[in-house]
Simulated assay, not measured.
Amino acid sequence: MIGPLPRLHRIGVLAAVLLVCAAIGAWLGSSPSIPFLVGTGLVGGAAVGAVAAYALLHQPHTHDSRPRHRHR
């Protein structure tokens, strides 16, 4: 988790992670030693990138156990 970021920076991190992971997937798909297609590697890399971006940018929600208002 990176921490609280402004919306523009979160979009930039998301785009960068997706781009890097998709490029790595396409590169692995074009490698002759691994029998994948470039498109399959691209989609798989983008999926891994989406999960990684979610893990990096997700803010855990803390639930306060105390009630906010006292009922009468």
Rank of each mutant, 00 (worst) to 15 (best):
I11V: 15
R72N: 06
D64G: 02
Q59C: 01
R7I: 08
W27H: 05
A26N: 01
A55W: 10
A22L: 08
A55R: 15
P60R: 15
L18Y: 03
I24W: 03
G39H: 07
P67S: 13
H9E: 14
L57S: 06
H58C: 01
L56I: 04
T40D: 11
R10T: 15
A16W: 05
G44K: 01
H9R: 13
L56F: 14
L14D: 03
G3D: 08
A55N: 07
A53I: 04
R10F: 06
V51A: 13
R72Y: 05
G44Q: 05
R72Q: 07
A26M: 05
G29S: 02
G41H: 04
G41W: 02
H61M: 12
A26S: 11
L19N: 01
A50E: 06
A52K: 02
P35R: 09
S31H: 15
L56Q: 11
V48W: 00
L37S: 15
H69T: 02
I11S: 09
S31K: 01
H9N: 01
L8V: 13
G45W: 01
P67N: 07
G49E: 04
S30P: 00
A15I: 12
V13Y: 10
I34P: 02
G45T: 04
H63Y: 15
A47M: 14
S30G: 15
H58V: 15
H63P: 02
S33Q: 13
V13N: 02
F36Y: 12
L42F: 15
L57Y: 09
A46C: 08
I34F: 15
M1N: 10
G12I: 00
M1W: 10
R72L: 13
L8I: 14
V51R: 00
P32A: 14
P67T: 01
G29N: 01
Y54G: 08
P67M: 06
G44A: 09
R7G: 06
A15M: 10
